[in-house]
Design a binder for these strands. Structure first.
Length: 474
RNA sequence: GGCGCCAUCGUCUAAUUGGUUAGGACGCUGCCCUCUCAAGGCAGAGCUUACGGGUUCGAGUCCCGUUGGCGCCA
């Protein structure tokens, strides 16, 4: 039998780190089992659902490379079907119209609470006669449809991640499946859709565990075959609370904008709640697919660690990203910051970006590190730079270096290094005494790529101009 | 309030399914390399496995309780 799974986000915001991880586990499971991955947008909450969110979620999924085989389906398109299913349950006597008003329910709930009883629905509309219903409707009451829960027995789940879980049926009340507006309630819509889409494995966050017994009751009432359930743990913020906006970047989009790579994010996400026996850290997508299994999923919630994600992203930039792709991505950020435009020499851009490969952890860090390559005047970045130039003999040293470089015929990295080192020796300068001021003179800062790499890329003209500029200011 | 899930270094996790000194990764500290910053290499600190009982020759692993965190239902 073909395995079928689905990812079913609500379009009430951006795709979340947590949502992305749920999607990933579903996707990996489907790909690993050569199954089908269905995408369904759960937009029954009309008030909060937006089309922008849907578009945003789809874009994020595509960006991560999680392709779906069917969909995206909109749950709202199945409303009529859901209503038919609800009517079917009413006909079968498994559901009934309830005319209790929200106010009445609230009053009763408070009474129950006051008596320290669990505030469940009292089942008072379970057996209304036709006349009673008619009377209510004449009063202008619109019924909801409630599912008739059994009064006893236990519902068992054999969760693929958590193991066996039991719920006492008597604790659950007759829950609403169709609101008076005719809109299906989440627990009902999910079951209908999962059945209609022939979902075999429901893989979702463990915040849905408590919903599962209700859903199972529905499957059984319809006589439908149960899917397997796998509840994966939540992702929490650094403070241990459920990950949300207030934890800073919880939306995938923000990571895209900061210059994270999809492969790195996928890799980080798979490590959150899943591991191989050898604790392997770096996984290519195909490796994840090959090795993924629900049995090896963790049961406990995981705290999202932006630092480790950053490290992984650096790894991917250094070791996995093709040089031409680094340049391509880097260019976008440089254009955005207006450091380059279509007139900027391409080869120069390539060389500049390549110089920072080992130093950046996100592509977004690039512009501020290389801005001086594209600016006419060198600005001193900080006090340290100032101090370096304030040291004795700097003026004289820079003048000598300028002279040496203007006549140097070899402007390659190795050639430059030889020239400058020789200059140090002839004049009896310590290398540091020379290297540091030169660095500051051409870049305005005390840190950066190797000095000779920098000089070589900048080229003779820029180097000499900048040294001259600096000397004049001293 | 009821019900449910969970509990190994600060964080993510591993542990041959009950059998050595609890392993790896991020982060942190130090050293090496070195023109700086990174990268890389090496080393170190950090977990009496939440706590308390029990079963057992033997428990991170099984059972019970407690505490705590999270979630669901309102």
């Amino acid at each position: 039998m073909t395995i079928r799974v689905r990812f079913a986000p609500s379009p009430t915001g951006y795709l979340h780190i947590g949502g992305a991880r749920t999607a990933l586990f579903n996707w990996l499971f489907a790909r690993n089992k050569k199954g089908v991955f269905v995408l369904r947008i759960e937009d029954t909450d009309e008030a909060r659902s937006t089309e922008e969110s849907t578009a945003q979620i789809l874009r994020s999924m595509e960006w991560l490379g999680m392709n779906w085989d069917e969909g995206p389906f909109l749950q709202s398109d199945h409303k009529a079907k859901h209503q038919q299913y609800a009517a079917q349950l009413v006909r079968q006597g498994r559901a009934y119209q309830c005319y209790c008003s929200p106010e009445e329910l609230e009053t009763r709930r408070k009474e129950m609470m006051a008596k320290k009883l669990p505030p469940k629905y009292n089942g008072q509309c379970r057996a209304l006669s036709a006349e009673q219903k008619k009377k209510f409707e004449q009063e202008g009451r619109q019924p909801v449809i409630r599912f008739r829960m059994p009064d006893s027995g236990v519902t068992k789940i054999n969760d693929l991640v958590k193991g066996p879980i039991q719920f006492d049926n008597s604790l659950l009340d007759d829950f609403v499946i169709l609101k008076s507006s005719g809109v299906p309630v989440y627990n009902f819509a999910v079951v209908c859709d999962d059945h209609d889409m022939a979902i075999t494995h429901v893989i979702r966050g463990d915040d849905h565990i408590s919903n599962t017994p209700r859903q199972i009751m529905l499957y059984q009432a319809f006589g439908w075959e149960l899917p397997e359930f796998a509840h994966i743990p939540m992702i929490l913020g650094p403070d241990g609370a459920r990950l949300s906006k207030r934890h800073g970047a919880a939306a995938l989009d923000e990571y895209i904008q900061q210059g994270y790579l999809p492969e790195a994010i996928m890799n980080y996400l798979v490590l959150l709640g899943w591991a191989t026996e050898d604790s392997q850290q770096i996984f290519s997508v195909s490796e994840m697919i090959e090795k993924f299994s629900l049995e090896r999923c963790a049961k406990n919630a995981a705290i999202f660690d932006p630092e480790k994600l950053k490290w992984l992203n650096g790894e991917y930039i250094r070791h996995k990203l093709l040089p031409e792709n680094l340049v391509r991505l880097g260019k976008k950020f440089l254009v955005e910051k207006k450091l380059i435009d279509e007139n900027t020499d391409l080869e120069y851009i390539n060389q500049v970006i390549s110089l920072e490969r080992e130093r950046i952890k996100t592509i977004g860090e690039l512009p501020e590190l290389v801005d001086f390559f594209f600016m006419e005047k060198v600005e001193l970045a900080d006090d340290k730079a100032q101090k370096t130039l304030a040291k004795p003999n700097v003026k004289e040293i820079l003048a000598k270096v300028a002279a040496g470089l203007s006549s140097a015929q070899d402007f390659s990295v190795a050639g430059l290094e030889q020239t400058v080192r020789q200059l140090c020796e002839t004049n009896n300068y310590k290398t540091g005494e020379v290297f540091h001021p030169v660095r500051v003179a051409v870049s305005g800062r005390t840190t950066g790529p190797g000095l000779f790499d920098m000089l070589s890329v900048l080229g003779r003209e820029r180097v000499l101009a900048r040294i001259k500029q600096t000397v004049e200011r001293l």
